[in-house]
Design a protein around this nucleic acid. Structure first.
Length: 642
RNA sequence: GGUCUCGUAGCGCAGUGGAAGCGCAACUCUCUGUCGAGGAGAAGGCGCGGGUUCGAUUCCCGCCGGGACCGCCA
C-alpha cells in the first residue's frame, strides 16, 4: 500500500492491473520525503517565523509545533461545526482540522474552510496536535496527528474535476490522458514517476561508477533503410529532403566507439513509426550502452550488474548472480518463446515419440517428420475444468494460430478428454511420466509445424500461468537468451534478412558459413528478458569494413545503396574501428515491471494512445498553410472511398 | 490493414424490444471527531448515422472513439 493511501477500499471487480499497481514497493532512500522545505520564497510563506513542512512528514514528535503547509484539498469532511480537510502534496496527506474549540464557526478562517472544494490549492498555518484517543488513522503515515488551522490562504481555486483525484476508481484511459495533469496528481502516478526517476538515476550512477561517459546524440539524423518506419522531419533549408528521427542511436554509438570513447551510455529517446501496444510507444526511452574491446560475456556481465544494482537500489530486491542463460533453441523448446517467462515452470514437453505409430492418426503422422512437433503443456488441476472450459481454451488456441487443440485429463476415475479414446493405459502412463502430470491435472497437446506448435504451446503455457496466478508481478525472473541465428528467411519473400540488425557479428569461427549456409550462422546477439518481456537486446558488432560490406551485400544491397545510405559509416569503419559491442534496454518496460504495471503508458508522463495521438495536446494536428509552404509540402487528400 | 471488445449522467458501473437505475462527484439544506464521514432534497444521460419493428438504449449494418491483440516493431 502506498503511503498516501488513506483507504483500502477494494472493488470486487477490480481489474488485475489495478490490484497489481498496489504491489508493495520498498521505498528507496532517494525518495524519502523531506520534512522541512526551507527553499520556498518568502512571498509564498504565510508566517516566515514557522517552518514550512511537507504533508507526509509530521509525526507525534511534532505535537505542539506551529507549522505551515501547502497543498491541494484532497478530501473535505464537513460536520457542520467541525471540518476536516486532507491536505495533499507529493509527499502524502495531513489532516487539517477546523474546530470551534479553537475557531469560532463565525470566524474568518472557518468560513473560508466551508468554501474549500476538491483540488483547491491552499497554504495554511496551524498547530500540530495529537488526535483525540481513538481517532487516530493507522492507514495514514501522519495518522497520529492533525493540524489545527489558525489561518488559511487560498492560492487557487479549481473547477470541478472530471474525475475524483482522491478516488481509487480509475477513469477510462482516454479521460486520464486528456486530463493528464489531474491523473498525475494521483498517488499511483506520483509513485510511478518517482520510481522511474530512481531507476534512471541508479542506471546513471552504475555506469558512472564503471567509467562510462554519457554522450548525447542528435535527434535529427539521416534516414537509413530497413527496420521500422522512420519518423521524418522535412528540411526547410533544403527543400525536398528530410531528417529522420533515430529509431535508436545504433550507428552513432558505434561511431563513438570508432571515435575512441571507450565506454558510452545514454538515456536516449528513440522513435519508431509503428502501431503502439501496451508495451510499445511511438517514442520511448532506452539506456543505450556500447563498449570497445569486449566480448559477448563482458557485455552480459556489465549489463546484468546494472539491473542487479537497479533492482537493489530501487526495489531493495536481490537478483541472482549470475543470471540464468538460455539459448534461443532452449527457450523455444522449453517455453515456446524467445522471451520466456521464468516465474513459473510448466515447461513444454515434447511427446512426438509417444504418439509416433499410435492410434491417434493425426499425431502419429505429424510425428513422422522432424519438421513437426507435438507439445504437451501440463495444466495443474485442469481435470476439474468443464467441457465448456476446454472449448474456450481451444478457441483461444485457434486465436493463437493453432488448427486445433487436443487434451486429456487425469482424474481418479480414469483418463478423459478429447483424445482419451486413443490413450490406452500404457500411453497414459508414459505421458504422465514425461510430463509429471498428477491426478487432477490436464494435458494440452499442440501438434503442428515445429515453429507454430512451439508458439501456440508457449502462449497456452502463459495462459495457464495467468489462470493459476503464477505470474506474480512482485516476482522478477530475469534471464539471458542468446545464440540467435544471424540471418533468417523472410516468410513472405523468401529472401534472407537479418534477425537483429545488420551490424551484428557472427559467432567466432562461423564466418566460413557465410557463403555456404548463412542461415546456420549463430549471431553474437543476446536479449535480456524479464517476466516474459524483452527488456532489450545487444550484440557484438562487425568492426571491419570488409565484413560489414559482405553482410550488406548478402542482404541484397547494391554497392550504390550501401554508399548512399551507409557510406559515412563504412568510411568510419575503414579508419581503424575497434572491436566493440553493446546493448540497449527499454527504460519504459523496466519501470513498468518494477512498478507492477501492465502498460508503459502508466510510467510515462505524457504518453500517446493506441492511435499514436496525444489526447491532451491533440497531436498530431494540422499546421498553417504558410508552414507547409515554407517546407515545400502539399497535403494530398486520400481518394474518397466509393 | 485485420480480429476481438467496450461506448448508458461529469466519473465508475447495472439494465431492458414497451415509462432509465445504482455508487461517487457536483448543487441546496443539515450535522462537533471524521478519515469512502453521516442525513435530507433537487438537478443531470443511452456516441453518431442508417436499417428491421407498431415501437430500438436494447436486434442488424456502417461510421466515430477507447482498449487488448495480430500484422508491423532492424
Amino acid at each position: 500500500m502506498h503511503r498516501w493511501s488513506a483507504g483500502s477500499r477494494t472493488t470486487p471487480t477490480a481489474p488485475a492491473s489495478r490490484a497489481r499497481s498496489r504491489t508493495n514497493i520498498t521505498t528507496s532512500p532517494e525518495s524519502r520525503p523531506p520534512y522541512v522545505d526551507s527553499s520556498i520564497s518568502q512571498f509564498l510563506r504565510m508566517s516566515p517565523d514557522v517552518p514550512r513542512v511537507t504533508c507526509g512528514a509530521l509525526t507525534a514528535a511534532d505535537v505542539g509545533r506551529a507549522v505551515e503547509l501547502n497543498g491541494w484539498v484532497h478530501r473535505r469532511r464537513d460536520h457542520g461545526g467541525l471540518i476536516f480537510i486532507d491536505l495533499r502534496d507529493w509527499t502524502g496527506l495531513t489532516q487539517l482540522v477546523f474546530n470551534p474549540a479553537t475557531n469560532d464557526t463565525q470566524s474568518a478562517v472557518f468560513r473560508q474552510a466551508e468554501e474549500l472544494r476538491s483540488e483547491f490549492v491552499v497554504g495554511v498555518r496551524g498547530i500540530v496536535q495529537k488526535r483525540p484517543a481513538g481517532t487516530e488513522n493507522p492507514k495514514l503515515a501522519t495518522g497520529e496527528i492533525e493540524v489545527a488551522v489558525e489561518s488559511i490562504r487560498v492560492e487557487n481555486e479549481s473547477k470541478t474535476p472530471p474525475f475524483v483525484v482522491a478516488s481509487d476508481d480509475e477513469p477510462a484511459e482516454d479521460v486520464r490522458l486528456q486530463y493528464r495533469y489531474l491523473d498525475l496528481r494521483r498517488p499511483r502516478m506520483q509513485r510511478n514517476l518517482r520510481m522511474r526517476h530512481t531507476i534512471v538515476k541508479a542506471i546513471r550512477d552504475y555506469f558512472d561508477e564503471h567509467d562510462f561517459v554519457e554522450i548525447e546524440t542528435p535527434n535529427l539524423i539521416k534516414s537509413t533503410p530497413e527496420g521500422a518506419r522512420d519518423y521524418l522531419v522535412p528540411s526547410r533549408v533544403h527543400r525536398g529532403t528530410f531528417y529522420a528521427l533515430p529509431q535508436s542511436p545504433q550507428i552513432l554509438k558505434q561511431i563513438l566507439m570508432i571515435g575512441g570513447m571507450g565506454r558510452y551510455m545514454q538515456i536516449a529517446r528513440c522513435f519508431r513509426d509503428e502501431d503502439p501496444r501496451a508495451d510499445r510507444q511511438p517514442e520511448f526511452t532506452q539506456v543505450d550502452v556500447e563498449m570497445t574491446f569486449v566480448e559477448q560475456d563482458d557485455v552480459l556481465r556489465m549489463m546484468e550488474g546494472c539491473v542487479r544494482y537497479v533492482w537493489r537500489r530501487a526495489l531493495g530486491a536481490v537478483i541472482p548472480d549470475p543470471l540464468p542463460r538460455l539459448t534461443y533453441a532452449e527457450a523455444m523448446t522449453r517455453y515456446g518463446s524467445d522471451k520466456p517467462d521464468l516465474r513459473f515452470g510448466l515447461d513444454l514437453v515434447d511427446v512426438d515419440d509417444l504418439f509416433r505409430g499410435g492410434a491417434f492418426g493425426l499425431f502419429a503422422s505429424l510425428a513422422e517428420s522432424n519438421d513437426n512437433r507435438i507439445v504437451a503443456v501440463r495444466w495443474p488441476g485442469g481435470a476439474a475444468l468443464s467441457r465448456r472450459d476446454f472449448d474456450a481454451v481451444t478457441e483461444l488456441a485457434k486465436q493463437f494460430g493453432a488448427k486445433g487443440l487436443a487434451y486429456v485429463t487425469f482424474a481418479p476415475d480414469g483418463v478423459k478428454g478429447s483424445i482419451a479414446r486413443f490413450v490406452d493405459d500404457a500411453l497414459a502412463a508414459a505421458l504422465r511420466a514425461e510430463t509429471r502430470a498428477e491426478d487432477g491435472d490436464a494435458l494440452l497437446f499442440v501438434g503442428d509445424a515445429r515453429g507454430a506448435a512451439s508458439d501456440v504451446a508457449g502462449k497456452l503455457r502463459l495462459e495457464i500461468g495467468d489462470r493459476l496466478g503464477l505470474r506474480k508481478p512482485e516476482d522478477f525472473a530475469f534471464c539471458w537468451v542468446s545464440g540467435f541465428p544471424l540471418f533468417e528467411k523472410d516468410p513472405e519473400t523468401g529472401e534472407i534478412t537479418f534477425s537483429h540488425h545488420p551490424f551484428t557479428s557472427p559467432a567466432p569461427g562461423q564466418e566460413a558459413l557465410f557463403d555456404s549456409d548463412p542461415l546456420a550462422i549463430t549471431a553474437q546477439h543476446y536479449d535480456l528478458v524479464l517476466n516474459g518481456y524483452e527488456l532489450g537486446s545487444g550484440s557484438i558488432r562487425n568492426h571491419t569494413v570488409e565484413f560489414q560490406r559482405k553482410v550488406f551485400r548478402r542482404l541484397g544491397l547494391g554497392d550504390e545503396q550501401i554508399e548512399d545510405r551507409f557510406g559515412f559509416f563504412m568510411e568510419a569503419l575503414a579508419y581503424g574501428a575497434p572491436p566493440h559491442g553493446g546493448m540497449a534496454l527499454g527504460i519504459d518496460r523496466i519501470v513498468m515491471l518494477a512498478c507492477g504495471e501492465s502498460s508503459i503508458r502508466d510510467v510515462i508522463a505524457f504518453p500517446k494512445n493506441q492511435m499514436a495521438r496525444d489526447l491532451m495536446m491533440d497531436a498530431p494536428s494540422t499546421v498553417p498553410d504558410q508552414a507547409l509552404r515554407d517546407l515545400g509540402l502539399r497535403i494530398v487528400q486520400p481518394a474518397p472511398v466509393t
